[in-house]
Amino acid sequence: MASSFPAVLAQGALQAAVENRGLQAVRRCYQCRKCTNGCPLTFAMDLRPHQVVRALQLGMDQEVLSAKTIWVCAACQTCSTRCPNDIDIAHLMDLLRQESLGRVVPPAEPEVVLFHRAFLGSVRRHGRVFELGMLVRYKLAALWAKVRNGPQSLKELTGRLWQDARLGWAMFRRGRLRLWPNRIRSKEHVRRMGRAPTGPLCSGRSSGGPTSPNLSVPPFDNQTAEAPTPEAPTADPPGQTGGPQR
C-alpha cells in the first residue's frame, strides 16, 4: 500500500514536526511494547503502536502516515497512561492524524475521517452536535465515496443501507434520536474556533460554509515554520482525499 504513493517527505520530517508540536518524548522510546500490550485495537492495526513510534524514529514517515493504525486508534489513552517513558502516544496519534491530513497521503480509513468531519461540521453549524443530521450527512458521504471508489455490488450497498435503516429505526422508535437540532445563541463564536476548515461535507451545503480560513486563529502552541506548511493543503485536499481518490 505504502509503495504505491510517491514519497512526499524527507526522512525524519515527521518526527521533527511532531517534536515541534510538543512531543519531544518520542525520542525516549526503548521499545518495551507496553503500549502495544495494553492496546485494545491491535487486532485491527497494521503497525502496532510501538512500531509506529519506532518507524517515526527511523524516518519512515510514509509508512506511518498511510497506516491504518492512526485511524483505528480509539483514543482510549491506555498507552499514554502506561508508558514508562511518559510518551503521550494517544496524543501522538492525534498529531499523526492531523499531519496525514495536511499532506498528500490518502488516509487508510477514509470513513473515519468523514465521520469526524461530519461531527465537527454539525458542531460548527449548530454549536452542538445534532446526531441525526450528522449521521445522515456522514452516511451519504460514505456511500458516495464508496460508489466513486469503484464497482460495488448493488447487493452490498443495499445491505449497508438496510442495516443503517434498521438501526436508525430502532433508535428512533425508542426516542433516542432528536428530530431537530439544539442550537446555541453564540454560533458565530464557535465557528471562529480552530484552524482547519471542516471539509467537504459542510462546505458544499451550509450557507456560511466552514469558517473562512482568514478568521482562524494563529496555529496551536508555538509551532515553528514547519507546521503551517502542511496546513495550506489542509484547506482543500482532505476534501478530496477523504476517500474518493483511493
Partner: peptide, 13 residues
C-alpha cells in the same frame, strides 16, 4: 472528533 482533526479547536471548544 475535535482532537482527532484539530488540536486547537479541541481546546477552544
Amino acid at each position: 472528533s475535535a482532537h482527532f482533526l484539530d488540536d486547537q479547536l479541541a481546546v477552544e471548544l
